[in-house]
Amino acid sequence: MPGTPPERIRNFCIIAHIDHGKSTLADRLLELTGAVSAREMVDQMLDTMDLERERGITIKLQAVRLSYVALSGETYELHLIDTPGHVDFSYEVSRSLAACEGAVLVVDAAQGIEAQTLANMYQAVEAGLTLVPVVNKIDLPAAQPDLVAAEIAEVTGLPASSVLFVSAKEAIGIREVLEAVIREVPPPRGSVAAPLRALIFDSHYDPYRGVYVYVRVVDGELAARTRVRLLNTGSVHEVDEVGTFTPRPVAAASLSAGEVGYFTAAIKNVADARVGDTVTLAVGGASSPLPGYR
């Protein structure tokens, strides 16, 4: 479904301390929107690296498109960009934040706010993201959701009444999270009519297809069979395929302003598609890069 109007797009990530239930919440969002059926559901669907599943921590960024019919009856295209919750991966967090307008802040109802949550939250605020606060694991016997909501209100300045109470494990309050994302997170800014500018925020190597380059299209349109230039390296590539992760890669005709997805272009090495670089058209493209990463 290329060319979704930007006002129907929401780009968001989930930030949380390790073990506060971020991956479980992501799984529930995938289930509720029908991105994966219950039969296909592997616990922690977005965590594809084996090491990740083994240690239960999110390492590799993932970017999944969810099609969600809101209570208003409107269909929205939501891009969930998964971020690592572990302290070692804060660089990957900064990469994913640059592709989003909003962040769902998940805090464990029994543990409360922890140092890493604060660090990631301040990064999100610094990046200009709108926060959607969530207290998770309200099903636990030791849960103190009201206390934790007050704690969140204190550090974020958001009203305690805006904090959502959720149990990702028991699938309680999941729809409310998506409704809050639509209501609170602003749609992406950018112009389809402007020259193509897309931000590279991750990539992974596939032995059959070469490098999958993950991009957030800010302006213009990225289509297959076009020649693109990476502004920082100056290299030119012919795009073989563009598409979105749903969570498996699905080819599309194009990606336009506000959308998140991938492209392949027979790039052989991940180092050739640098995170923070700007993708534009080889001919008639943009002259100034997007603000990259630190």
Rank of each mutant, 00 (worst) to 15 (best):
V106Y: 06
A124L: 03
V69D: 10
H79W: 07
T33S: 12
K22C: 02
V215M: 06
V148R: 01
H204E: 14
D206R: 11
G34C: 04
A16F: 08
A282R: 09
D88P: 05
G102N: 04
Y293A: 08
V135K: 02
I57V: 10
F12E: 06
P186Y: 07
H204A: 13
S72P: 02
V42W: 09
A273P: 01
Q123G: 11
N269P: 09
R189I: 14
V185W: 06
V215D: 03
V42M: 11
H86E: 08
A143M: 03
V213K: 00
V106K: 07
L30P: 06
Y214D: 15
L230R: 12
I174W: 14
R248V: 15
V181T: 14
A266T: 15
L230H: 12
E170Q: 14
A38I: 09
A266H: 15
A223N: 04
R53W: 00
V192Y: 13
E52N: 02
D27C: 02
V211D: 03
S67C: 10
P188D: 12
F245V: 06
H79F: 12
R55Q: 00
G34H: 06
V163W: 09
R216C: 04
Y91I: 05
V64Q: 06
A160T: 11
D47M: 01
I113P: 06
T130S: 13
S67W: 08
R225C: 05
P247L: 10
G112H: 11
V215L: 07
P247W: 13
V185G: 01
T233M: 13
A115Y: 11
A271G: 12
E241F: 11
E114R: 12
L178S: 00
D82H: 02
A224G: 11
A193C: 12
S287R: 11
Y212L: 10
L46H: 02
Y293S: 08
I174G: 05
I81V: 14
R189M: 14
G276I: 03
L78R: 09
E101S: 03
A153Y: 13
V270M: 12
G56A: 01
Y293Q: 07
I152G: 01
T130E: 09
G128R: 01
F201Q: 00
G85R: 06
L78P: 04
L196G: 05
A109Q: 06
R10A: 11
A224T: 05
V69S: 07
E154R: 08
V236N: 13
A142Q: 04
G210C: 03
I15T: 11
D108L: 04
G21H: 03
V148K: 05
A251M: 10
A286G: 01
Q111L: 08
S72E: 10
I81F: 05
I200R: 03
